[in-house]
Amino acid sequence: MGSPVVEVRNVQKVYGKKGGNQFKALNDVTFSMQEGEFVGIMGPSGSGKTTLLNVISTLDQVTSGEIKIDNVDITDMGQDELSDFRSQKLGFIFQDFNLLENMTIAENIALPLYLQGTPAKNIDAKVVTVAKRLGIEELLQKYPAEISGGQKQRSAAARALVHEPTVILGDEPTGALDSKNATSLLETMKDLNDRQNVSIMMVTHDAYSASYCQRIIFIQDGKLHKEIHRSATRELFYKEILDVLAQLGTKNA
């Protein structure tokens, strides 16, 4: 284990105006994530998991507390700084892929490199390398409309990886995929994590997807509920997750 890549300290996120109808989406959340970890965030709908991912991914701002990524405090950055930060340090995989349908797969993958001003001559090599890693090198010249959902998500993953970000953030990356494609993508992510030491943080409500993580943080009503580590096989870990979810379910009811 290396140094912490993400540190979340006493984070609060409150929606609504003071004195009005306030809603605490995140209430004093603290945790950290080490370099090379594969962390899952789980919780029932409305628990605040997407809000947590949004504040970590700098798309939303916290009401109070501190978030450090790669030892940089992102809570007091301006909009432009945050944009640059996102384009350099973070890689995103979204549920609905969010590929730009007006660009080829190669152009989509290369986009973060263009944004960083990487010299044009280096770009092609990097794109091909990352495409090979994800097994999509035949698709590079196609447009998103011409490929399947699983292939789109792999392309999105390639785009998230190409600029070698500090951490990859996934928001239900398997949500729109069938089970076969989902498994294949999860295997790939695990492989990236195992072999290339890529740090991944993924929000999911699906226990099967979560079972690929090393550690899972459960959130409920904006608070940290529980944290479990994988110690044995994935199958056992899957059962453990289901148990926690069941617990959460009965408590709700």
Partner: peptide
């Protein structure tokens, strides 16, 4: 919106 998310400045 997607471009915003992956870190393109508003000015860009």
């Amino acid at each position: 919106q997607m471009l915003r998310k992956i870190g393109v400045r508003r000015s860009a």
